[in-house]
Design a protein around this nucleic acid. Structure first.
Length: 512
RNA sequence: GGGCCGUUAGCUCAGUCGGUAGAGCAUCGGGCUUUUAACCCGAGGGUCGCAGGUUCGAUUCCUGCACGGCUCACCA
């Protein structure tokens, strides 16, 4: 072993470097600038894949007479090779699909044959030749010219088992993508989901906007922010925790339907459901209420599930989830009572209004109850511990306490609760929506109440945003708004248990 | 941050009731012009995560640390 630019070099790497020098000595440009292709490998598979399949000799002869006319020039990474003396088979990958090539020493130049013999798995090559189907029925390119395109100095993961090491899959996602097709498919599907979401809102007259990621105040959600510093202005800035208050300013400004699909940042724990930066869809619609958003959410998600998964029933974490509308609606209290632990007697509904009982249950169920928590906070915690993970089928949860919803409009009948819902699917919180509070005086009082919580030590309580109050002062029409956690939605639609499996480069502690 | 579990060849994994380790793929040499986890013959490759401790002897037992996974707490 010796030190090199890749760290410790083992014999495999030394051998690859030797091969590279041989290829260079053969006169091949070690790093050519471009390679013109007639097809991608995926295009060849799509166009000519129907010729594949084992056939009787005379039919094979006929098919190959036809295919021989198809001259192709393709490129890819060499994934496997089977050298048999003076001929060889290999598989090339364009990332999406694989295609076999067949090369014979007497049908290429000696220099090209030498090149082939000094290639390593992982190298990029280009080939020119014609199509044929082998005796075993595999569509293959019969190579006439071979080109060297780029070197893989480091050995690839094993061809059969792929890359299993979870840490390496996250840290070196490029290796995961090369070795594990399933991983690639998750991210292709993620891109489809995001594209469909944009199409869905664009078609309904929404406009997509971009609001600041670096903000002077971290508002719009209850979370701790990342702090940075702007040198020229000499001010601290916060990575946004939510775009909410900016989007409502745009409603004030006369954009009646807006959405933003982008990253939020929260300086909190990492788990299978949390990444410090995560993708959030937020959308706001003037003159609508949260009932309309429940309709819209059902429409959006059933459209996505049908388009992406091909069925309204999908499997997630061992459960069948049925998206057939309409979805169940429960109040927060109903959700708690319906999912009450079997080991404890179910309380009467009015018991959930008794603070002493709430704290006793919370202590018993979660093992922790902070005396500073208000009854509303305790109710929220109780829901999280008792009900959340059991809400497998799509469920709208309603009846949230006003105190837990400082930006939402109160119910006309009961000002202690707000017109808000959260959507739970597969035990995951997917969406949060409400009628937007547009009374500046009430909003001011809510901010004041949040600041009192903050003074009591609640670091996640919201801060006062005076410009937002001023914006509301110019008048905001009745509006409903919603946020949807895209990473979790992608988890659901790709059947992944960990948010890290749907984020290309999840955050990790640095290697040492 | 707490608890539990993991870290052995480039990769995927065995294994050692404490006596310094094996397989498959990959690599190297030889054979092979329709193979496909190609095949046949031969070979090399490891400070068993790091640092201490116990021991005649530690990859194995103990402690600490690092990184990761699950989980609890915080949160979406």
């Amino acid at each position: 072993m010796s030190r090199g630019i890749f760290g410790e070099e083992n014999e495999l790497m030394v051998q690859r470097r030797k091969n590279f020098e041989v290829i260079r000595a053969l006169g091949f440009d070690p790093y050519p600038h471009k390679f013109d292709r007639t097809h991608t490998i995926a295009e060849i598979v799509r166009t000519y894949g129907r010729y594949a399949g084992a056939k009787p000799p005379e039919e094979l002869e006929r098919v190959n007479a036809e295919l021989r006319q198809v001259a192709v020039r393709i490129a890819g990474r060499m994934m496997t090779t089977r050298l048999m003396g003076r001929a060889a088979f290999a598989h090339l990958s364009d990332g999406d699909q694989r295609l076999q090539i067949y090369i014979r020493s007497n049908e290429v130049s000696e220099r090209e044959w030498q090149l082939y013999n000094h290639l390593d798995l992982g190298d990029f090559i280009g080939v020119e030749g014609y199509l044929f189907v082998t005796r075993t029925g595999e569509l293959t390119i019969h190579v006439q010219r071979l080109h060297f395109l780029a070197k893989a100095f480091l050995p690839l993961p094993e061809k059969w088992h792929g890359l299993q090491d979870i840490e390496m899959r996250y840290r070196q996602r490029y290796l995961d993508l090369i070795a594990n097709r399933a991983s690639r498919e998750v991210f292709v599907r993620r891109a489809q989901i995001i594209k469909e979401i944009r199409r869905f809102f664009d078609e309904r007259g929404y406009i997509e906007v971009e609001t600041p990621m670096l903000t002077p105040l971290a508002t719009g959600a209850a979370a701790r922010p990342f702090i940075t510093h702007h040198n020229a202005l000499d001010i601290d800035l916060y990575a946004r925790i939510a775009p909410e208050l900016y989007l409502k300013r745009l409603i004030v400004g006369g954009f009646e339907k807006v959405y933003e699909l982008n990253r939020n940042f929260r300086n909190e724990g990492i788990s299978t459901k949390h990444n410090p930066e995560f993708t959030m869809l937020e959308f706001y619609e003037a003159y609508s209420d949260y009932e309309d958003l429940m309709e819209l959410t059902e429409e959006l998600l059933t459209h996505l599930v049908r388009t992406i998964c091909g069925s309204l029933v999908i499997e997630y974490a061992g459960n069948q989830i049925d998206f057939t509308r309409p979805w169940r609606r429960l109040t927060l209290k109903e959700a708690i009572l319906l999912n009450w632990p079997e080991t404890m007697p179910t309380p009467a509904p009015e018991d959930l209004d008794v603070p002493e009982r709430l704290s006793a249950w919370l202590q018993a169920i979660s093992g922790r109850c902070d005396p500073r928590w208000s009854p509303a906070q305790m109710l929220g915690k109780l829901f999280e511990h008792v009900a959340e993970e059991k809400l497998i089928q799509p469920t709208f949860v309603l009846g949230y306490p006003t105190e837990l919803s400082p930006l939402a409009k109160q119910s006309e009948e009961d000002p202690t609760i707000v017109h808000r819902f959260e959507l739970y699917i597969g035990g995951l919180e997917i969406a949060n929506a409400f009628c937007e509070l547009n009374d500046p005086a009430e909003q001011y009082r809510r901010f004041e109440q949040q600041m009192r919580l903050r003074e009591r030590g609640d670091e996640e309580a919201m801060v006062m945003d005076e410009d937002f109050i001023r914006a509301l002062g110019y008048g905001m029409p009745p509006t409903a708004g919603e946020g949807i956690g895209i990473d979790r939605l992608v988890m659901l639609l790709t059947n992944q248990r960990s948010i890290r499996d749907v984020i290309l480069f999840p955050h990790m502690r640095p290697e040492r």
